[in-house]
Structures are given as C-alpha cells and as structure tokens.
C-alpha cells in the first residue's frame, strides 16, 4: 500500500471522529429528560404511556390510513374504550399545550414532523 502510515492514521482519525457521539455519550452525564407537560386533568391516553412514547408516530400513521381509506373512524383501545380517530380533535383536545408537549421532544430530537402544516394547533399555544 502506498503511504501506508498516513493512510492508517487517517483511517483511525476517521473512525474516532465518526464514532465520537458514542464516546461523548459514554463519557458524558446521564441524558436529560425532555420535561414534557402532561395534560392536567386527563389521566389516560388511548394506549399506555410507554406504547404512546415509542409508537405514537406509527399509531398516527395507522389511524390516518384506517380513517381515510377504510372509513374506520373509531379506534377501540385495548381496554375497550372507544375514541374518535382525529389528531386535531381527539389528541390535541387533551394535549392542548403544543409547545410543552409535542415540541419538547421533537425539538430535542431534531424531529420536524409536518403534521402542523395542515392540522391546527390549538389556539394560544402557537409557536
């Protein structure tokens, strides 16, 4: 190999830089919580908090397809409770505080979902 020394050093530097986020997180402190504000009055969401945390995006996609394409506009939750399928009229009814709820995690994780270009954020909590 030509310039074996320089190339090897270059590869090592590249690998270190490329994996640096992992090292930084290993050395760094614990992650900080996003500090979202849960709805004050409501205690239960359509599914468990853990499920919603991990899967709300897939659930919303599924809701969208079921409601729009199959006219299934009612979701029967695993506990038997029925919910009208609507991001704007069901989800946001409880989760009124858009900046304190949705935005908290989305901003922290640099996620920019385009929900709000069509669906309306409740008045008063606009960006």
């Amino acid at each position: 190999m030509y310039n074996a020394k320089a190339v090897t050093i270059g590869i090592i530097i590249f690998v270190i830089l490329f994996t640096s986020p992992f090292w930084a997180s290993l050395l760094g402190k614990n992650y900080t919580e996003s500090g979202i504000t849960l709805p004050a009055r409501e205690k239960e969401c359509v599914e468990s908090a853990e499920f919603m945390r991990n899967k709300h995006m897939q659930l919303l996609n599924e809701w969208r397809d079921e409601a729009l394409r199959n006219e299934h506009r009612v979701y029967v939750a695993s506990n038997g409770k029925k919910w009208a399928i609507s991001l704007q009229n069901t989800c946001l009814k409880c989760h009124k505080e858009y900046t304190e709820f949705c935005d908290k995690c989305h901003v922290a994780n640099s996620v920019d979902p385009y929900c709000w270009t069509c669906h309306l954020i409740p008045q008063g909590s606009k960006k």
Binding site: E71, H72, Y75, A77, S78, A84
Partner: peptide, 14 residues
C-alpha cells in the same frame, strides 16, 4: 401488520 393493540370500526352514527 397493525401497530395498534386495539381495533378499528366505523362510527355508530355513520
């Protein structure tokens, strides 16, 4: 495959 543990149905008054 469905993600949601629940099921879907049409509205009763539809």
């Amino acid at each position: 495959a469905k993600v949601a543990p629940g099921s879907y149905e049409k509205g009763a008054s539809a």
